[in-house]
Lab assay of single mutants.
Amino acid sequence: MPVRRGHVAPQNTFLDTIIRKFEGQSRKFIIANARVENCAVIYCNDGFCELCGYSRAEVMQRPCTCDFLHGPRTQRRAAAQIAQALLGAEERKVEIAFYRKDGSCFLCLVDVVPVKNEDGAVIMFILNFEVVMEKDMVGSPAHDTNHRGPPTSWLAPGRAKTFRLKLPALLALTARESSVRSGGAGGAGAPGAVVVDVDLTPAAPSSESLALDEVTAMDNHVAGLGPAEERRALVGPGSPPRSAPGQLPSPRAHSLNPDASGSSCSLARTRSRESCASVRRASSADDIEAMRAGVLPPPPRHASTGAMHPLRSGLLNSTSDSDLVRYRTISKIPQITLNFVDLKGDPFLASPTSDREIIAPKIKERTHNVTEKVTQVLSLGADVLPEYKLQAPRIHRWTILHYSPFKAVWDWLILLLVIYTAVFTPYSAAFLLKETEEGPPATECGYACQPLAVVDLIVDIMFIVDILINFRTTYVNANEEVVSHPGRIAVHYFKGWFLIDMVAAIPFDLLI
């Protein structure tokens, strides 16, 4: 008679799926529990143990900040960024110097990925580790590398530091407007667009060049630039800015003055950032001319202004700041037409079709709590990747769950009947059967004279019903998954307890 339990259901295979997918890609990662103190490590794979030199037993239950890997060259700011990422709910990448158990130093890129439950609360953290440099290539500990984003994938490793954006290309926007319009339909740009040429040739750093990471940081200074100062900065030398009595002219307006920039070969870094931020506020060169004239017309309804409409929906549905990093990277690809469009465009503009998908598509409701890094690593669709929660398995109709209350009560009843059979069957065979043979035949009273025979008949009927119930009862397979398919249940029961239950259900007393 089957006594099969499996009270692990309803099970959740999400954690096993993450481990299996990460292991298949030869990654070095740990999984931490966000619900406990210090976000203790609950799993670390073999790749991480080989990377740091510690065994799994030495890593388990330690804080996922990996303070046991810190050393003299470990930056405090990087460690603080990892700790801050564990307090938030967004994906974050941090470069930090770690030390192995043998004392060797290596520069590592740590990717902190939160995993949320159905309520939107962070319950786990996945920390992925990628070695960037070994100890002989690690720089000085005073050099802070965590304020910069990861290198873009479309640049060669040897040319990542030679990417320079020439400031004269930004200063000569109005001069290039006529050349853009003359391109017409034969050019790649839309009317009114501004073409910015980027020099990728390796050259020595000069005062006129600005690194790509500095251009990325310009967006942080746009908020500090007032509207009046932006307007004066875009007017140009024809209309000098008016300053109040006793007030000095704005240095932001002076930063885009061609006369002032041409007199000296070098520009201050602050002026460069502010000038680029001011130019980015204009949607095209037409807006710059309109600002000089004193009238700013409404933005025209053409394809170039609607190019950012799908980007707005993608940004609203993005799951991490990696989408913004990807957008900034692609927006700086050289030799393309940049349409400086305000994100607050007309909502009635139709979304044009684009061959290049900048932001990841909208994630469906079932995966809105899973970050983009987890979705990318697992390579699963929205119909396959579940949320991290207890999910009731989908069972067929008329199927009994093996952990249901009805099955528990039924098993206790069958257990009592088995005990009765084990006690009274030998007793009936030894004593009652002998008395029946010696006594007179009682054929007239039937079952009324033999109450134990009636009980034995009921017990046999219950055993037959138990066999039928076992054909529709779920079970737990070797992978700790609840199986509810009727065919698989029948095959599993035939290979197991079916023969024993059938022999126990045969009414031998009635056959004798």
Results as ranks from 00 to 15, higher is better:
274 E>W: 15
220 N>I: 07
7 H>R: 07
185 A>H: 14
73 R>T: 11
2 P>A: 05
359 I>W: 01
276 C>R: 07
82 I>A: 01
108 C>E: 01
335 Q>E: 12
20 R>S: 09
113 V>I: 13
106 F>V: 05
128 N>P: 01
26 S>E: 10
178 S>P: 12
93 K>A: 13
198 V>E: 03
36 V>W: 06
320 S>F: 12
285 A>C: 15
163 F>C: 15
20 R>K: 07
335 Q>G: 14
230 E>V: 05
354 S>G: 14
201 T>M: 04
315 L>N: 15
300 P>N: 14
10 P>W: 15
139 G>M: 14
343 L>E: 05
56 R>A: 07
87 L>C: 15
126 I>K: 01
152 T>A: 05
339 N>K: 12
341 V>A: 15
194 V>M: 01
296 L>T: 04
130 E>A: 09
343 L>V: 09
171 L>C: 12
147 H>L: 11
190 A>I: 06
339 N>P: 14
180 V>L: 12
352 P>L: 13
91 E>H: 11
270 T>H: 06
20 R>V: 05
50 E>P: 01
297 P>Q: 08
350 A>N: 08
385 L>P: 10
13 T>V: 14
11 Q>T: 13
165 L>H: 14
183 G>A: 08
356 R>V: 12
122 V>D: 06
352 P>S: 10
283 S>E: 15
187 G>H: 06
170 L>C: 15
263 S>Y: 09
15 L>N: 01
357 E>T: 11
104 S>F: 06
317 N>D: 15
174 T>H: 12
62 R>C: 07
288 I>V: 07
307 A>Y: 13
101 K>I: 01
5 R>I: 08
55 S>R: 06
345 G>F: 04
60 M>L: 14
222 V>C: 09
168 P>D: 15
145 T>N: 15
133 M>P: 15
321 D>M: 15
356 R>E: 15
5 R>T: 09
348 F>L: 07
363 I>L: 07
107 L>W: 08
293 A>Q: 08
51 L>F: 05
316 L>V: 07
278 S>E: 11
305 T>Q: 11
288 I>T: 12
153 S>Q: 06
6 G>V: 13
152 T>R: 14
41 V>E: 01
207 S>P: 06
263 S>T: 06
347 P>W: 03
75 Q>V: 05
47 G>W: 01
280 R>Q: 14
170 L>K: 11
291 M>Q: 11
376 Q>F: 02
365 E>G: 12
127 L>M: 11
64 C>T: 06
276 C>H: 14
101 K>F: 01
351 S>E: 14
309 H>A: 12
116 K>R: 13
38 N>K: 15
18 I>S: 01
363 I>H: 15
148 R>F: 06
329 T>P: 15
67 D>Y: 03
122 V>C: 09
313 S>L: 07
214 E>C: 09
241 P>S: 10
158 G>A: 14
75 Q>N: 15
82 I>F: 14
216 T>E: 10
344 K>Y: 05
273 R>L: 11
132 V>Q: 15
138 V>D: 14
238 G>M: 08
364 K>V: 13
278 S>R: 09
356 R>A: 05
365 E>Y: 11
249 P>M: 11
225 L>Y: 03
116 K>C: 10
67 D>C: 05
133 M>S: 12
48 F>R: 01
60 M>I: 15
288 I>C: 15
299 P>V: 05
236 G>M: 04
348 F>I: 13
118 E>L: 13
281 R>C: 10
96 I>L: 04
298 P>R: 07
5 R>N: 10
185 A>S: 12
98 F>G: 01
284 S>A: 12
244 A>D: 12
289 E>S: 04
164 R>N: 11
215 V>P: 06
338 L>N: 11
351 S>C: 13
297 P>V: 10
124 M>K: 04
377 V>C: 06
43 Y>S: 01
358 I>D: 15
72 P>Y: 01
354 S>L: 05
107 L>D: 07
305 T>C: 07
262 G>M: 14
153 S>R: 09
39 C>N: 15
26 S>A: 14
82 I>E: 01
322 S>T: 15
245 P>F: 04
83 A>I: 07
